[in-house]
């Protein structure tokens, strides 16, 4: 029988959402339109419309050593062109953000090629070739894994994921990269490292509480789905914990 990945345990809506996001066959729901130029502005790595700066000559123009792995792996577009490696970093609020750092890394590893994710408690960074980054960022911002209020695109000074929200429902940001306008739309006024943008970039309206609760991948006992209510998840985590404690890195079940 062919191997069918299960992606993760759990019966709760949170567990289902986690599996959905990780499953590369599930098409992420597109919720907003952000143009390529806007994405380049938020990322702040190069001027919109500028050519991709390169770190090395295109692969076609340089001599490659005889290597069996290079024969097996098709290079991504960015690698083929010799682009620089650049990044996008997200901070996700614990108050029912649609994605969270570990989940992002799992999801990206299932869905994207040629990436180097870095996972931390409150933020997640993904590095890859610039050309690929633009595509991946577009997907990460336009689809259901992003919420303008609860998710922040933050290259530096990311603090805020575990804090109370502001009165208008926005996650705390020391640099206030995005502001909730009077029309209900969230606009980025600074790029991800905090440099002011020439024009504000609209990323749409924040999703409502009901939608967030139904689409979140974070357990939260006060505002969302409590972890303890998902029996299967608890059982799974306890099993892993017990195996690790008893057997270290070579678990054996008798």
């Amino acid at each position: 029988m062919a191997y069918k990945p299960q992606f993760g345990p759990g019966m709760s809506i949170v567990a289902q959402n986690r599996r959905k996001q990780m499953d590369p066959n599930h098409k992420l729901e597109k919720l907003r339109d952000v143009t390529d130029e806007d994405i380049v502005l938020i990322l702040g790595h190069r001027a919109p419309g500028a050519a991709y700066p390169t770190a090395h000559p295109p692969l076609a123009e340089q001599q490659e050593p005889a290597c069996p792995i290079r024969k097996i792996v098709t290079p991504t577009d960015g690698a083929k062109a010799g682009d620089r490696v650049r990044y996008i970093q997200f901070a996700d609020s614990m108050f029912n953000a649609p994605c969270q750092p570990y989940q992002r890394t799992y999801m990206e590893c299932y869905r994207f090629r040629g990436i180097d994710p870095g996972t931390l408690s409150g933020r997640q960074i993904v590095e890859c070739r610039e050309r690929d980054l633009d595509q991946y960022s577009k997907l990460l911002i336009e689809t259901e894994v992003f919420d303008p209020a609860r998710t922040g695109i933050r290259g530096a000074t990311v603090h805020g994921h575990s804090l109370r929200l502001a009165e208008d429902g926005m996650m705390f940001d020391m640099l206030q990269r995005c502001v909730l306008g009077a029309d209900g739309n969230v606009k980025y006024v600074k790029n991800q490292i905090g440099e002011p943008l020439d024009r504000a970039v609209n990323v749409g309206k924040p999703m409502d509480e009901k939608w967030l609760k139904a689409h979140t991948t974070i357990f939260h006992s006060l505002v969302g789905t409590p972890f303890r209510e998902d029996q299967e998840y608890v059982e799974y985590v306890q099993r892993i914990h017990s195996l690790r404690t008893k057997y270290g890195f070579m678990p054996k079940e008798v």
């Binding site: 290259g155 530096a156 000074t157 020391m174 640099l175 206030q176 490292i193 905090g194 440099e195 002011p196």
Partner: peptide
């Protein structure tokens, strides 16, 4: 801005 590449730039908030 206290740190990062934009360090020292004004931080209107």
């Amino acid at each position: 801005v206290p740190y990062g590449p934009a360090r020292g730039q004004p931080n209107p908030h």
